[in-house]
Write a protein that binds this DNA or RNA. Structure first.
Ligand code: MN
Ligand code: MN
Ligand code: ZN
Ligand code: ZN
Lengths: 142, 142
DNA sequence: TTTAAATATGCAAATTATTTGCATATACGT
DNA sequence: ACGTATATGCAAATAATTTGCATATTTAAA
């Protein structure tokens, strides 16, 4: 699931039932390379250096990849979306209230507590993903 | 901290260092009455039935109340903001991927796990709030 | 391989959510 | 009551995202 090689990316796209296009490959490859959730603006900017691609295409592909379950979408209350690869694991991050930087926190599981929440509310059987955001002021802005 | 009476709302606004206006009172009162995080559109719609208020005024007041720490802002990846009273406690909700309904989950604390996350990342000293969203498909949409 | 239908793309224009400029009105300390 | 800072309405501007449409590409079938 490392999603490094072009073959892996290709396989993931196809097994998701999506058509294989250069743009889709490039979008996935970029997200696989980057460590933080990326904004659409950043993604378009990055992709445009390598290929001719329109923002509408990026938006449409992000939506289809997300609907196929390959991407996770996050907001952070920034007024714009951020995307990252969907790993199936929980996504945790620290969000600075001042500069809006986002820092991913790895290696901590809150799954048991989340499972408790899910059981408490019996109505949500098919819960898929969850995300936890902690809002505060980062070291740099403090 | 129930924020029911007009006196309580007034006190909260003034002690936040904000001027007392009818609009601010009405906005806070509405948010105190509603159980779920509310969209700006819903809020404007509700307020317009009682008083003459412009959306710009609502946006400006939501921002000032939020900056004063009285409101919490949530996104849920809906492309628009939602607001609720800031209780100081964590805010947990189930978000349906299909119909976008939001269900608040009360009475469960994940604070210990969140504190662990905060310690793990020493850089975030002044963390204020956190929110956990669980995305899935609600009973009605399943 | 062609071929045809389904899907993807670029480009421009449209929508939605949110913000801002500016003239006037209101809040509140003095 | 007065003066200044802040709030408001209204219209216009921005920012994020979506959509229409003509053309290009993908893919499965022939
Ligand atoms: Mn951002
Ligand atoms: Mn919503
Ligand atoms: Zn910061
Ligand atoms: Zn639903």
């Amino acid at each position: 699931m490392a999603l490094h090689t072009k073959e892996q990316l290709t396989a993931v796209i196809k097994s998701a039932g999506l058509r294989l296009t250069d743009h889709r490959l490039a979008i996935l490859a970029t997200l696989a390379r980057v460590k933080q959730p990326v904004t659409v603006y950043e993604l378009v900017d990055t992709l445009r250096k390598k290929e001719n691609i329109d923002q509408a295409t990026v938006y449409r592909n992000l939506t289809s990849l997300h609907e196929a379950g390959l991407l996770r979408r996050l907001d952070f209350n920034h007024g714009h979306a951020h995307y990252e690869l969907e790993t199936g694991e929980a996504s945790h991050q620290l969000v600075c209230n001042s500069c809006e930087t986002v820092e991913k926190i790895e290696g901590i599981s809150i799954d048991s507590a989340v499972q408790k929440m899910l059981k408490r509310s019996k109505k949500f059987k098919n819960a898929t993903t969850h995300s936890i955001e902690i809002y505060g002021v980062c070291k740099h802005c403090a």
